[in-house]
Structures are given as structure tokens and as C-alpha cells.
Design a binder for these strands. Structure first.
Lengths: 159, 159
DNA sequence: CTCAATTGAATTGTGCGCAATATAAATTAT
DNA sequence: ATAATTTATATTGCGCACAATTCAATTGAG
């Protein structure tokens, strides 16, 4: 109520918290999509989608790894990775082979083409940096903050 | 080459930039998924998915709006929104009606149930805040930085 | 050693996200 | 007024994400 006795909606903290513009989750969600859209034309030239690019980044650092291991590094499960990896295999960028030591494990290794693609990919980060219109230092600082948030969120899940 | 004349791979800036851990895009991507996983059990109680929750947040601020308008606020197109809105209509949270002034336009309005759901949703942000294990001030500061980045990325798209 | 429990991957089903296309309504140009 | 263009939404197809389930291989308890 205001002083005239007319019903006025009180803007509580809970009301404020529900505003779209106040939500960090929406900021993160919409920025992820913005990144995806900036990456799209660059990755089209490599014949990769953005999630496939992430898988290739992980494999360029270390391959001959289990699907499980890849999933832990990328925070993805087999439901996402299995079909994605089959598409990368169809594109002859990776090879999937059952481990002889443990027949449950499928090992992912890069093919020669998969290794070679890394050279073409080297140009990508530079383009992204340009699109972000931001210094490397600023981006790395933000990255650290966001990763810290992600890790706290993931920790909350495990409780 | 090192001093012994043995071939040693030089770690160039381009090599560093391809490291998964150095990529802000992966930080944003994986944090968006982490948020989604934290939201899931909370939103299940409301019968909403996370994108549906975002649509409801937007509508609680202003409804009786065109699909186009909703899309601009959420950075989504009709290919995403049309089926999502049909599901919200099936759940009787919203009503879709053709505008009489412009028959191309579909107006989205909340139903009584749609309005009512807002009360149940008020508890959500508090739970997210707790999971993020972060002060409101820190989160708002990060949010502003991320939104600024998103806006620069989107601006780069328009060029 | 045997059987239950666990583990790693694959499968199924649902819901985004988006490019490309289609369609109908409105606007503009001629 | 008619044709060409633009605009708003819908549809189709593909590729994630992820929950839930299945299945085979491995491990562990008794």
C-alpha cells in the first residue's frame, strides 16, 4: 500500500531476483549461444560443429583415451559422445577401437587427418579473440572466474 | 631445436590458444551446462525445462507480446520458440492467439496458471545462489562482464 | 569359485538450437 | 490496383544434451 491507500506491488528481493536481466545464468546461457554463432562460420570450414571442435581440442592435447575420460574432461556423457564420436569417425578424423585389456572400454585415437586438422584450427582462436573485442588478459581473468563458478556449481551437485 | 640440436616442438602462442583449459568459450559452455544441471531438480517441481523457465521469466515481466519480441529478448528464433511455446500452451501456462491487427503476429499471453506459477518460482533464485556459493555482488559483477562480452560477440556477428 | 554389484558404452526418447525453407500477411513500388 | 518485396511465424532436418534403460565385461564379497 502507498500513502494514498492504493494497492502498490512491493518490489521484493524475490521479485528482483526473477528479473531476466539480473540472472547470471541467462548471461552465461546467452553468451554460450553467442559464442556458438561466432564459431559457426569458422568451424564450417573445418567441417566441425562446436561440440566436435571441443572434442578435437581435447584429443589434440591427449588421444588414445577412453570415452569415459573424454566425457570427464568435457563434462559430457556417453549419450552425447557416442553419436558425436561416430560422426567424427565417419569423417575419418578419429578411430574407435575396443581396448583389449578391458573390453568395455572404447579408445579414441586421432587419424592422420585428425592430427592434420590441428594446423587448420590454429587460425580459429585468433578470429574469436578479434570478435570478442577484448584483451587476452581480460578474457583469461574472466575465464578463471567463470571456471571457479562452474566448479562450485558442480560441487553443489555432488552434495 | 634445443641446444643439443634435437627436434623440440616449439610451444607457440597458437598452440597455447588451442588448449582447452585456455578457452573462455569452453568455460562459458561448460558453465551453462553446470547451471542447467543445478536448475533441473528445481525446475522439475515447476514442470519446466530451463529454456521454458527463461520464457516464463520473460513473460512474467511482460506478456501479450509477439513471438518475435520474445525471441529478441531471449536471442532465440521461431524454430526454437514455436515448439517450445506449443508445449507451454499444452501445459496451459500460456495462450497463443493471432493478432487481429496483424495476422502474421502470434501473441503470447500468460494464463491464470501461468501467472500463478510465478509464486512457486520465487524460491528458485535463492537455491541457485546457494549452489553458486558466491555473494550476490560478485555474481552481479560477473554477470555484467559476461553480458558485455556477449554483446560484443553479437555485435561482431552483425558486421 | 560363484553370484551379485559395479562399470563403460550404447540405445531410446524428449527437448532444445538453428539453418533452410515454406507460407501467408502486410508493405512498397510502379 | 497489381506485382515485387519484406515480415512474422511455422516446418523440416540435423546435431547436440541428458535421463533412463540395456547389455556385456569386470570386480568383489562370501
Amino acid at each position: 500500500m502507498d500513502s494514498m491507500g492504493i494497492m502498490v506491488r512491493k518490489q521484493t528481493a524475490a521479485d528482483q531476483a526473477l528479473r531476466l536481466d539480473n540472472q547470471i545464468c541467462f548471461a552465461v546461457y546467452s553468451t554460450a549461444h553467442a559464442f556458438n554463432r561466432v564459431y559457426k562460420p569458422l568451424l564450417d570450414r573445418l567441417g566441425l560443429t562446436y561440440p566436435q571442435y571441443l572434442v578435437m581440442l581435447a584429443l589434440w592435447e591427449r588421444d588414445d583415451v577412453a570415452v569415459k575420460d573424454l566425457g570427464e574432461r568435457l563434462f559430457l556423457d556417453s549419450g552425447t559422445l557416442t553419436p558425436l564420436l561416430k560422426r567424427l569417425e565417419a569423417a575419418e578424423l578419429i578411430k574407435r577401437t575396443r581396448s583389449t585389456e578391458d573390453e568395455r572400454v572404447v579408445l579414441i585415437a586421432l587419424t592422420a587427418q585428425g592430427h592434420a586438422l590441428r594446423e587448420k584450427a590454429k587460425a580459429v582462436p585468433q578470429s574469436i579473440l578479434a570478435a570478442s573485442d577484448c584483451s587476452v588478459g581480460e578474457l583469461l581473468a574472466m575465464k578463471d572466474e567463470i571456471v571457479a563458478l562452474r566448479d562450485r556449481l558442480n560441487a553443489a551437485l555432488g552434495e
